[in-house]
Design a protein around this nucleic acid. Structure first.
Lengths: 210, 210, 210, 210
DNA sequence: GATGAATGAGGTTTCATTCAT
DNA sequence: AATGAATGAAACCTCATTCAT
């Protein structure tokens, strides 16, 4: 391992250390209340150091999303790679993938949806914005391909695959945000899984041929 | 009209004047960037005056949501009040209602979803929070009742009515937020209606008996 | 006196109060070391208040210069207005005017020259920059006119009046900066007057006809 | 060449390398905006290394001035060494020397004047400050000697030679700073030579006997 | 009731300098 | 000797909120 490579690795480790701290602080103090100093303290680094790894606060926040998008992508590709047998099973695999994404990191997922629904997006460096965008676009395309295949195999009712993917994605993000908000207000327990079950059942029934 | 009543009326007029200004500013500058001074200027009032009508900035924002919830409630009750004929028509009416809500004031609707997905909720006065909550709860209940009726009439597949309402609501809010975010990034035109059409078709097919 | 006018007056008083404090702090701590908080404390105001009167730190600094330029302008116009008698007396009046400008506020004068010799200029609001520029331009023009008249009256050797004005202005600012720097290093007493005397004698002899 | 000497030479080479880089960065980014990291990058060294050769940022800046002062000194001594023939020619030689100093390195010259007119001076190590001071003092003395000789030879009007030297030096630095500032504002072309021509003509006429 | 000047806590960010490797 | 990652103090500036008029 060359010295260059080791440095690169060390640098990546630091980045992760900061992201982990950021996630923790963000989850404790909430999106707006978390300060760079909080994060620095949590990461046991100085504020200045954060800026060696992330251009500014928005970019640090946004970077949290990339990881989960990458995870989503991997899971979706797996679903797509499995031999096509039966529509119901396909959808089940898809549902399972999405739920895993939620469990992988609920807080960051909410963060991501939150960010997408705000004007924060406009302030990101075009580089990062492009990454997020392209990854999120590809994910939707992979999803769309699943539905496309299904339609071709006469398992799914004919719809524009992109629109179906958008529907599923909206359903998913809507549930995540809505259930989170209910949890915030009521301190209720986490009903997300149940809501998602019903929602998915309806969705499945809605797109599968009888 | 007593002097008391006239005062009350005058006061309400001011509140509306501020809300209108707030909405405009919020839509121009974005959620976080809008300042109280901006709003005051737009309302042709002084900053101090805003605080005579709204406890703080969060409350002012939150108050924007009430109006749209009230409108939602009215529309839903209408749907519910119509003589029950046929499931498809019921759902069509429901869809139409929701789309009207969107058109009634897209910006405030997004604002509302945005707020619900953030920790702003925690900072509201319990009074306002209660109002929002109860109104939003009732709306969901009215929706749920529609599905309940439908199930009883064997028009809809049996599901827990609340879960179906949650699904629809999530779907709706998810689409609004997701399509808005896409519009922000791409400066694309407004595809919301189309996405919602497909989504609703799938949803309808998913809950109706064949 | 209307309420509007009184407010305007009050506002101007505050501006002056801040400028006075800024000048004091600037002179004690030096150009770069002075902070907005220092100035606020000196003015017995809060930092935020400074920003109600000056857009940013650079503008506050630059505003210090305007006053002295205005004073310069007045003094020069007086020299110009006096009935033209004799070249020597004209120059004497001019010299006296410039020395008064120095005494009016040496620190701000140095500040002004310092600023002009730096890239701070680029960061000013175009409005303020224009004011400074135009005032400084007019001053030079008034000076140039004095020399122009002198040449026409055959009292001064023929030179391009603008170039003569530039020479005098450069001489003046050069002396101010150079003598100040010597004073800084040596903690010497203020030799400026003497240097200026000699310099002006040479200058006068250089432009007057024998 | 001993090993000691070679080391010394190597060290000097590095110093020069840094100074060259510093000059370049300073000229591009302006006095205040230039950072140590910029300079390090330009010199293809690391920030830490700069501190092995210069105590701090101020010293690095100040060191830039030494070279030009040395050049000035050499040129002035040449003027002084030439056989005294005629006052006009003496002054011409002096003027030519000063203009050469300007051309030798305008940026550093401005830098030097800029520094002299600021409180940076106070923060230098006494060693460096002494060097600058003594060199700048000697330069003025050499200049003064020229005028002294001229007076003794009845070519120049009697004035205190130091005061005349100060006048010339002030005139020179004043012009450099003033013309630079005009160039900054107007993006005008470089009028310095012309202004200096007129100024010097006036100055010459002012000190020469008729 | 309305004003709007003033507040001041608190946030983000920069950058000269250090020091372990 | 050279590195360059890390530091952390300190600066500028914003803006929700208050309160004397």
């Amino acid at each position: 391992m060359g010295i260059q490579e080791r440095r690169e690795r060390e640098r990546e480790r630091r980045r992760q250390q900061i992201l982990v701290a950021a996630k923790r602080v963000f989850s404790n103090r909430g999106f707006n209340k978390a300060t760079m100093e909080d994060i620095a303290k949590e990461a046991e680094l100085s504020p200045g150091t954060l800026y060696l790894y992330f251009k500014n606060k928005d970019e640090l926040y946004a970077s949290l999303s990339l990881r989960i998008l990458q995870y989503l992508m991997i899971r979706l590709e797996h679903v797509n790679a499995e031999p096509l047998t039966d529509a119901a099973q396909r959808l089940k695999a898809l549902k399972s993938a999405m739920y895993d994404v939620y469990e992988f990191d609920p807080l960051i997922l909410i963060n991501m949806f939150h960010m997408q629904s705000s004007e924060t997006l406009k302030n990101l460096s075009s580089d990062l914005l492009n990454q997020i965008e392209s990854l999120s676009r590809s994910s939707l395309q992979v999803m769309a391909r699943i539905f496309e295949d299904g339609v071709r195999q006469k398992m799914f009712v004919a719809h524009h695959p992109n629109a179906v993917a958008d529907t599923l994605w909206s359903l998913f993000s809507g549930i995540v945000l809505w259930e989170t908000s209910k949890k915030t207000i009521d301190n209720q327990k986490d009903y997300l899984r149940e809501t998602f079950d019903t929602a998915f059942e309806i969705f499945s029934r809605g797109i599968m041929r009888q």
